[in-house]
Design a protein around this nucleic acid. Structure first.
Length: 430
RNA sequence: GCCGGGGUGGCGGAGCGGUCAAUCGCACCUGACUGUAAAUCAGGCGGCCUAGUGUCUACGGGAGUUCGAAUCUCUCCCCCGGCA
């Protein structure tokens, strides 16, 4: 992998990542395709919507279809017919999301008096790794830093993530510290194993390190300093986008972490997110994002929209809540050309379940160039959503992905290209 | 006309003497969703209000029995099936 930084305005950056499956312009949004499919989207539709790279998930792909099938088909690219770059998450997030009991997603077969130490959770963490109970059939699987690399190699991932421990949103400093240290320990093994396995490879995949540490400056620093001793291809910022994570925490994590990361390394903010957060993070120097929101919200009947404050469209738009609007104000800072473009820009959601959209004759969003917005009315989208027609999901998914990907296109384009000089290049591992 | 079955909240459909403003679906209304156990989940859903182990009106209409009826009796109206 190669990363070149081509433009910098204050902290915001424009760059390019080169992988064995093609180039990626940054800042980039990566649609999430957990199980080898960006839900509801065909490959051609992903291309049409402007996706440059998609995500896959080690945990899910390992359980199904399984490493044997992936290997038989020569990796995920061939298996799913996506020939652009793929970044794979390690299963670290599943340590978090499957690791906590919740009423709505309780393991069905786990009884009260269970003898093992899962205690109703689907994950048990040890120094060795994480023991998962498959959410599909309850079978047990051990994920170690090494195994996770092997699986990602079988997937044929272009950019790999190491197994990490992602603490939940309500974790205290003690838990976050433990997560930092475990992530460090695991990374040391990851690096050693990755180095050994890929040394001879002709097309070597990239490996990022994941910085943990919550909103704690010392812990973020400690996490980074340990990880920075390895010559990784990029740095991920983890633990900022869990359910219930506060925006303040997210902001602090960015402030404490981004300045630590060397210029010539791509920075990947894992799991974020919402348009306003994205712009805010880009302003501070983040290069890569992924999030399930555009696809999930679409399946739940919600479309992302944006408009200027004077736009009539706002009548039917749910404006960001007070907190979100506050966040938007950071966009009004005149410090960056990037931000100036977004002055007065508002982001909102339209919930197509609402009967108020029954007669809407306009498009989902004025000015959007997605298929649905070019061809269909709000009333029709509302009808599809209410009728639970698959097409409604497909159109909204396409819209939301186009919306966010176009946001990134606009951001990249909004930077004056008068300075073409390359500011920093990291092609060591290419 | 006779025989049988039935009329419960917007709809379907439980309940068949008290713990029923009434299980459960659907519909409807709110809300959530951030490295996907999610085309999911949570809450609300008779009226009124000082919003509560508050109050009023309620289970086709009417009249009874009973301390107490959506639940039992009588009667009227209506619907469905069968036979004339």
């Amino acid at each position: 992998m190669k990363f070149s930084l081509t433009k910098k305005i204050n902290n915001a950056r424009i760059g390019k990542i080169t992988t064995h499956h093609g180039d990626i312009d940054t800042p980039v949004f990566m649609p999430v395709g957990t199980m080898g499919s960006v839900r509801a989207m065909k490959g051609t539709e992903l291309v049409g919507v402007g996706a440059q790279i998609i995500l896959g998930n080690t945990y899910h792909l390992y359980l199904r279809p399984g490493v044997d099938i992936l290997e038989r088909f020569g990796g995920l690219h061939n298996f799913m017919g996506w020939h652009g770059p793929i970044l794979t998450d390690s299963g670290g997030y599943q340590v978090f999301s499957l690791g906590k009991r919740s009423d709505s997603f309780q393991s069905a077969e786990e009884g009260e008096g269970s003898i093992d130490s899962f205690q109703g959770n689907l994950v048990r963490i040890t120094d060795e790794g994480a023991v998962f109970k498959s959410h599909i059939d309850g079978s047990k699987h051990l994920f170690t830093p090494e195994k996770v690399i092997d699986i990602q190699l079988a997937i044929g991932s272009d950019i790999m993530m190491p197994l990490d421990h992602c603490p939940s949103a309500d974790a205290d400093d003690k838990e976050i510290e433990a997560a930092v240290d475990l992530t460090s320990k695991w990374f040391e093994r990851t690096w050693k194993y990755f180095d050994k396995k890929t040394k001879e490879m002709e097309k070597k995949p990239a490996l990022f390190a994941i910085i943990q540490g919550g909103a704690n400056e010392k812990l973020r620093k400690r996490s980074f300093e340990f990880l920075s001793q390895f010559l990784v291809d990029g740095f991920s910022i983890g633990g900022v986008a869990n359910a219930g994570e506060s925006k303040l925490k997210q902001q602090k994590a960015l402030e404490f972490t981004l300045p630590l990361i060397p210029e010539d390394k791509p920075r990947y903010l894992m799991g974020v997110g919402e348009p306003a957060d994205i712009i805010n993070a880009i302003n501070q120097g983040v290069d890569m994002f992924d999030c399930v929101l555009p696809t999930r919200l679409a399946r739940h009947g919600v479309a992302w929209v944006s408009s200027s404050s004077s736009d009539r469209l706002l009548e039917s738009v749910t404006l960001p809540d007070a907190v979100a609007q506050e966040r938007c104000t950071t966009l009004d800072s005149p410090q960056s050309n990037l931000t100036n473009l977004w002055l007065g820009k508002k982001f909102g959601k339209v919930d197509f379940r609402k009967s108020s959209l029954r007669e809407g004759s306009g498009p989902i969003m004025e000015g959007c160039d997605c298929f649905a917005c070019r061809v269909h009315s709000r009333a029709y989208i509302h009808h599809l959503v209410k009728s639970k027609e698959i097409l409604g999901i497909r159109l909204l998914t396409e819209h939301n992905l186009r919306f966010v990907l176009r946001l990134f296109e606009d951001i990249r384009r909004s930077v004056a290209w008068d300075n073409k000089e390359v500011l920093a290049v990291d092609d060591r591992s290419m």
